[in-house]
């Protein structure tokens, strides 16, 4: 799997084809929007009986990323659980798996809009994290050098007659938005005003998949964000 490596506010970051962000110097792996327990919440709330294997698939992919990068620190950028009930109701074997993954690692849970309160799992629980020039939180704000999740960006790209639709990172000089890492987490198209108006005109979309590929972010009709020079 090839990473897309780029400089960001003094750090060298790698956007991985898996949708994780890897900061090698800090030994830090960032994943966003795991939405563990999503299928159970769907059954509880909407009555849809989706294949109940999403949590184990998400964890299996996370474990593969941990093995591949050798990360010492893991940062989950919010909405790690589909809701608090899902966090409490996680099956015992999934909970054990999480415990095993977190053993010997520094694990940070950033709170999200789906899982605002503290979760009774090991690790540090924070609203946001500042690490040098980089700040990590769930939903993007106006802060520069910010890494967030929440929007689950995905892009649609015409490729000689067929259309590619995949989760992607969005990157500009000020911010990075991560795709969702959870197996069942859908995406919001980059052309949506919510994303379109958030990113600078020269923003890149980094497409996940076998290898991470950067393309200019496909835009909608909104005016891209302007940089305000102080």
């Amino acid at each position: 799997m090839n990473d897309f490596v780029f400089p960001f506010h003094g750090a060298r970051l790698a956007a991985r084809g898996s949708g994780a962000l890897w900061w090698a110097e800090a030994g830090l792996l960032v994943v966003s929007d795991l939405h563990l327990g999503k299928s159970a919440r769907m059954a509880r709330r909407a009555g849809a009986l989706l294949p109940p294997y999403d949590s184990r698939d998400t964890l299996a992919r996370l474990e593969a990323e941990l093995d591949a990068t050798g990360a010492r620190r893991v940062l989950c950028l919010g909405d790690s659980f589909d809701d608090l009930k899902a966090a409490r109701g996680l099956e015992a074997d999934m909970r054990d798996w999480l415990l095993r993954l977190s053993a010997g690692r520094d694990w940070i849970w950033i709170e999200g809009n789906h899982d605002p309160g503290p979760v009774d799992l090991p690790g540090t629980h924070l609203a946001a994290l500042q690490e040098g020039a980089l700040s990590f939180r769930h939903i993007a704000t106006a802060v520069r050098g910010e890494i967030s999740g929440h929007y689950h960006p995905k892009l649609r790209l015409p490729l000689r007659g067929s259309t590619l639709s995949r989760p992607c990172f969005l990157v500009d000089a000020d911010r990075i938005i991560l795709p969702a890492f959870g197996t069942y987490t859908g995406g919001l198209c980059t052309t949506d005003p919510a994303l379109d108006g958030l990113m600078l005109a020269e923003a890149l979309a980094i497409v996940t998949g076998h290898s991470a590929q950067a393309v200019p972010m496909p835009r909608g009709r909104s005016t891209p964000r302007q940089r305000h020079h102080a």
Partner: peptide
């Protein structure tokens, strides 16, 4: 449908992986 649109492709892949006789 902000995020409620489910990719049936992912459901298909998940079933094949974890429940191939479904």
């Amino acid at each position: 449908g902000r995020q409620a649109t489910f990719s049936s492709d992912i459901l298909y892949d998940t079933l094949r992986k974890y429940d191939p006789d479904h």
